[in-house]
Every structure is written in C-alpha cells, then in structure tokens.
C-alpha cells in the first residue's frame, strides 16, 4: 500500500511538473511576427478579470474582480466591481484612479515613472508588446495551451516596481490569458509579492463606447 502511495505521489509530481514546464520558443522572430499581426487585427477587447494581490507579509492574498476594456490606440480601463467599486483608466498620456467618488488624475508625460508603468500595463494587458522598447528584455516560452513571455525590466527605476512580468498568451489568438507582475524581494522576506490578473469571457473587436475612457 505504501509503495502504491509513493508511486501515485511521484506520478502526480511528474504530471504537475510537465504541466508547468514551459520550453523556450525555437523561432522567436516568427512568433513575434505572428503576435504583431494578431495585435494589429485587434481594435478592442472586453473581458472579465480577476486580480489577486499576494502580500507575503500578510500570509494571504487579496482578490478583486471586474471588467476590462481596451480600445486602440492607448485606451485601457479596469472597472473593479468587487469587493468594492473603483476605476483605473488610461487614455493617451493620462492616467486616472477613481475610488469613493474621488479622482486622482496623473499626466504620464510629466511623471516618467507613471508613464512607464502605464506603458507596461497597457502593453501587457492588450497583448501588444512588440513596441515596449529597449528598456525590457523579452524571453519567449511555450507550453500546452499558452505562450509565456517573461518581461524583465532593464532599468533600475522600473525594477523598483516590477522585477519581472509574466505574460501568458492564448496560442489560438494571442490574447492575454494571465499577467503576473512580480515585485522585487523586500527586506527580510523570502517570497516576492505579486499581482496576478486573469482574463476570461473575452470579446474581441466589438464596439466599445469612447465615453468609458473619458478622463476629467
């Protein structure tokens, strides 16, 4: 009986490993071209999302959910519906956070850090990562259903906020399935804090009202 249990455990472990193992993409240039073509064909995205913020010091994570909207060019909205309502809107150079009826509007062109952060989030969530610039190192992997793009910032300023971003793209349409933003390790901690977004019920290229992205 003991042997059976050991074998079962080993089989389960190897299965888990095989599911998690992602192999490097052999033809990166081809994949990039396909991604760029797919991104060019997407004018809008609407989906549901869940956000999990893991804070190592708290020993648990905080979950939120809501609606995600993307409209070409450069318009992103995260409408949080639970556990409480709030909005994050990116439109051109502006970024707005709205909570409890209070709006905080930032001009990304006047705040380089906010601008860079906006660029990363906007590019990753829309899946349009081809134009992220030279400040990031991209590594491409493939597993069963998804491509995994590991994005590592090269500059110290950005590394303060994100050590790495893992982007999971659906192999079928290159749409974003999951995005995991990993923070740098903090003083006295053994695990990194991270924020993970999972997108579902995606609708591509359906009309999204411009009023959704208005910042004022």
């Amino acid at each position: 009986m003991k042997k059976v249990l050991v074998w079962a455990a080993m089989a389960f472990a190897s299965l888990s490993f095989s599911l998690q193992a992602a192999e490097p993409v052999s033809d990166v240039a081809d994949l990039k071209a396909k991604m760029q073509k797919a991104a060019a064909n997407v004018s809008s995205i609407q989906s549901d999302f869940t956000q999990e913020k893991y804070v190592s010091a708290m020993g648990n994570s905080m979950k939120s959910s809501g609606k995600f909207y993307y409209q070409k060019e450069n318009k992103v909205k995260l409408e949080y519906l639970a556990p409480f309502k709030q909005n994050l809107v990116m439109n051109g150079n502006k970024l707005m956070m709205e909570m409890n009826g209070k709006k905080n509007i930032m001009d990304a062109s006047a705040n380089p850090m906010a601008g860079e952060l906006k660029k990363v989030i906007s590019a990753c969530m829309s899946g349009d990562i081809a134009n992220m610039g030279e400040n990031y190192q991209l590594e491409f992997f493939v597993d069963g259903a998804n491509y995994l793009v590991k994005i590592t910032p090269k500059t110290a300023d950005i590394k303060k906020f994100a050590q790495q971003v893992d982007l999971y793209l659906d192999k079928k349409d290159f749409s974003v399935v999951k995005m995991k933003m990993i923070e740098p390790l903090k003083k006295g901690q053994s695990k990194n804090d991270y924020t993970e977004y999972t997108f579902s019920n995606k609708k591509l290229n359906e009309k999204v009202s411009d009023s959704i992205f208005v910042i004022k």
Partner: peptide
C-alpha cells in the same frame, strides 16, 4: 488625492506590519 489599499497584520505581540499598494497592485510602502 491618492487612493489604494492598506493591508494590516500583527507580526508578533506588539509588532504590526502595514503595506499600502495601488489599486493595480504596486506597493507604495511597507
């Protein structure tokens, strides 16, 4: 005005930890 999420916990007796982060998860202070 700035908004976000504040997480509080008791690390041990008489010691508390507080982490503030933006809505989209970036830590502001810990």
């Amino acid at each position: 005005s700035m908004s976000g999420i504040l997480a509080l916990t008791k690390e041990s007796e008489g010691r508390f930890r507080m982490v503030m982060m933006t809505t989209f998860g970036v830590s502001l202070f810990d």
